[in-house]
């Protein structure tokens, strides 16, 4: 019995010593891949996004669409009109249809909702570099990591057509990267509305303030 108890104790200690503790129990992290206790149907012969895959020559499961193809997908509704992604319309290109001239005005009408969406998306995608107020003092500039960042209150940018702003966001310009793949077109236009609001906030005069609110301003 004594030998059994000693053996038992040693086994228990050995198992605990080798297996360790759970993370939430004070154990550490591990480089070892997860253990599948019952691996029955955990992994099936199907494609999962962004995984390596031997079937395609380039070895990835998430294939890019063949060059020159455009998704038909859901139309984008603006007011009563519906636009499809393959159409040459300002909402998707920023150009006046059939030309390469930038459209002057944002094709998506502004509403409180669009403005809010623009503010939120601006905070996610633009503020890290251009700063919360658009003066180019985002966090990357502040810590001195990024020397060149555009100031959106520059006169040249204020007087740009909305279509040109759309073009800059979609394809990037000089040192700024392209955000077309990351932000859908309707959000790009919402961001442009918000950028215009930011610019206006610096250029406004007392005349822009409604009569009844002027008294509340401290000069």
């Amino acid at each position: 019995m004594r030998y059994f108890l000693v053996l038992f104790g040693i086994t228990v200690l050995a198992v605990m010593g080798i297996a360790g503790r759970r993370l939430d129990d004070g154990g550490g992290t591990t480089r070892k891949p997860p253990i599948y206790v019952f691996p029955d149907m955990d992994r099936q012969l199907k494609l999962r996004p962004q995984e390596p895959n031997a079937f395609f020559p380039n070895g990835v499961s998430s294939q890019l669409p063949p060059p020159g193809t455009i998704a038909r997908s859901e139309p984008l509704r603006v007011g009563d009109e519906a636009f499809y992604r393959y159409q040459d319309v300002p909402v998707f290109t920023g150009f006046v249809s059939g030309t390469t001239n930038f459209v002057e005005h944002n094709p998506i009408p502004v509403t409180a909702q669009v403005m809010q969406r623009g503010q939120e998306r601006y905070a996610i995608h633009c503020a890290p570099c251009h700063g919360a107020v658009g003066d180019g003092n985002g966090i990357t500039r502040k810590i001195g990591a990024m020397p060149v960042v555009g100031n959106l209150h520059e006169k040249r940018i204020v007087s740009m057509a909305d279509g040109e702003l759309f073009y800059v966001i979609t394809h990037g310009r000089n040192l700024m990267g392209a955000y077309g793949p990351n932000i859908p077109p309707e959000d790009r236009w919402a961001i442009i509305w918000y950028v215009r609001a930011l610019q206006r906030s610096r250029l406004g005069t007392l005349d822009d303030v409604p009569q009844e609110l002027r008294a509340s301003l401290n000069p």
Binding site: F8, V12, G27
Partner: peptide
């Protein structure tokens, strides 16, 4: 004794709290 130890071991070690949590690949 053995039964208790095995049950406790399975209870503690055979759940995702142990088999996955903490996985940190390089």
């Amino acid at each position: 004794l053995v039964g208790t130890a095995v049950t406790a071991g399975v209870w503690y070690y055979f759940t995702p709290k142990y088999t996955r949590v903490g996985y940190q690949p390089i």
